[in-house]
Amino acid sequence: AFTVTYTKNAPTITPEQKTVNETIHYQGAGNQTPADHAASVDFTRQVSTDAVTGAKTYGAWSADQSFDAVKSPELKGYTADKAQ
Rank of each mutant, 00 (worst) to 15 (best):
T3M: 01
T3D: 03
V4C: 11
T5C: 07
K8C: 04
A10L: 08
T12C: 01
I13G: 00
I13Q: 04
T14P: 00
E16F: 00
E16Y: 02
K18P: 11
K18N: 11
T19W: 05
T19D: 12
V20R: 10
N21I: 07
N21S: 14
N21G: 07
E22R: 15
T23A: 09
T23I: 14
I24D: 02
I24R: 05
I24K: 03
I24F: 01
Q27T: 11
G28Y: 11
G30Y: 06
Q32T: 08
T33D: 15
P34F: 01
P34T: 06
D36G: 07
D36W: 04
H37G: 07
H37Y: 15
H37E: 14
H37M: 02
A38N: 14
V41K: 13
V41T: 14
D42M: 07
D42T: 15
F43L: 12
F43W: 02
T44E: 14
T44Y: 05
R45C: 10
Q46V: 04
Q46N: 13
V47W: 00
V47H: 00
S48T: 02
S48Y: 00
S48L: 00
D50I: 05
V52W: 04
V52E: 15
T53N: 08
G54H: 05
A55L: 06
A55K: 14
T57S: 14
T57C: 02
Y58R: 07
G59D: 15
A60C: 04
W61K: 01
S62G: 15
D64R: 06
D64S: 15
D64C: 05
F67K: 02
F67L: 00
K71Q: 12
P73D: 02
L75G: 10
Y78Q: 09
T79M: 00
A80M: 03
D81G: 07
D81M: 02
K82L: 06
K82P: 07
A83E: 12
Q84Y: 06
Q84L: 06
Q84P: 04
